[in-house]
């Protein structure tokens, strides 16, 4: 790690000033410190936000839904009584994140802001690594874990968050804050809009303006007829990055689907919403056959790179199983 200055403000109004041009926010630190050790990023100042109590707490109101302070750790989130009761799909997904040690440190805000695991990026070659003659290293090299959707380039990495697809399926919003922004300084976005596919090495994969920070995730109250599930295909039984993930939220009308949201994770540079899969479900009752039709629709536009065709199969299986899981049917899986 390179040397840096360290500050610990106690209110969020101070953060933007302290960040300046070359600072980074330190929350759980599980991703940032690793990036700094690998010299992928080298902030000149870390602004530790963990002493800002305004960013803590999980609250639930039946009318307004769930508000999750950015500093909530994944473990706190997974174990929160309201989350477990009202949004079991979220609690389950949070329980599967990384390892206990990571869940005890890492925060919800950090989970949204974590950087891609692309090995060219992590090995310091760049998020859009290029060969000396200007070709994409990911395309030319080993892309077994790279994107199959949203991969028109030059970004080929996959979005690393496993919570974001679930949250997006549930219609979550993200609240951002900067003391330097106009008005209240708060900006609220549908969570999916927070994730962007960067077009150049200098862009981030998040819509964070300079000085801005995540302060809260808001999840709307689930309707009585909502059924949701998430499925991760992981090579190891635990503590492994999913090779593909899908989250399904089905608004039911009796036994048929009134509306649906299907979001894929780890297959595109952003959490990938599949309106095609959702559309395929509307008006249908859930069965392995209808789930498969939706799964096929979800990957209809997928484009394999030289080494990742298998991820299309995995994405399909994840979508199918998430849908069946949401409907409370056997997924037939889980070897």
């Amino acid at each position: 790690m390179r040397p840096f200055e360290y500050v610990s403000p106690t209110n969020k109004e101070q953060v933007a000033t302290l960040l300046g041009e070359y600072g980074s926010i330190l929350a759980g630190g599980t991703d940032l410190l690793a990036l700094m050790k690998d010299d992928v990023v080298a902030p000149q100042r870390l602004v530790n936000i963990k002493h800002i109590d305004q960013l803590r707490g999980v609250t639930y109101q039946p009318g307004n839904g769930l508000r999750v302070g950015a500093l909530t750790t994944i473990a706190e989130f997974a174990e929160d009584a309201n989350v477990r009761r009202v949004y079991p799909v979220l609690a389950d997904a949070a329980h599967e994140v990384a390892s206990p040690q990571i869940r005890n440190l890492a925060t919800i805000g950090g989970n949204m802001c974590q950087r891609p695991r692309c090995w060219y990026f992590r090995n310091g070659i760049g998020l859009m690594a290029k060969t000396p003659d200007g070709k994409s290293m990911v395309l030319e090299g080993d892309n077994r874990y790279a994107a199959i959707l949203g991969n028109a380039g030059p970004a080929y990495f996959v979005s690393p968050s496993t919570l974001a697809p679930v949250l997006i399926a549930l219609g979550a919003k993200i609240r951002l804050y900067s003391a330097k922004a106009a008005g209240s300084g708060v900006r609220e976005l549908p969570l999916e809009e927070f994730f962007v596919i960067p077009k150049s090495e200098h862009e981030l994969e998040h819509d964070l303006k300079p000085g801005e920070m995540v302060i809260e995730i808001v999840v709307p109250p689930p309707s009585q007829n909502l059924k949701a599930a998430s499925y991760e295909v992981r090579q190891r039984a635990a503590f492994d990055w999913p090779l593909a993930q899908a989250s399904a939220a089905l608004e039911m009308d009796g036994s048929t689907v009134k509306s649906a949201r299907v979001v894929l994770g780890h297959v595109a540079p952003i959490p990938w919403i599949s309106p095609e899969a959702a559309q395929a479900l509307v008006g249908k009752s859930i069965s392995p056959e209808t789930a498969m039709v939706a799964a096929n629709a979800a990957v209809a536009q997928a484009k394999p790179l030289s080494h990742n065709k298998y991820k299309i199969t995995l994405a399909k299986a994840a979508v199918k199983r998430a849908i069946l899981g949401a409907a409370g049917q056997s997924t037939g899986g889980a070897a």
Partner: peptide, 22 residues
């Protein structure tokens, strides 16, 4: 990596060891 000739997973994240659940 065929392109750079470097090991792409010189870590314990993508150089996977079996865990207790495996």
């Amino acid at each position: 990596d065929p392109v750079s000739g470097r090991m792409l997973n010189p870590n314990m994240e993508f150089y996977r060891l079996a865990g207790i659940a495996d």
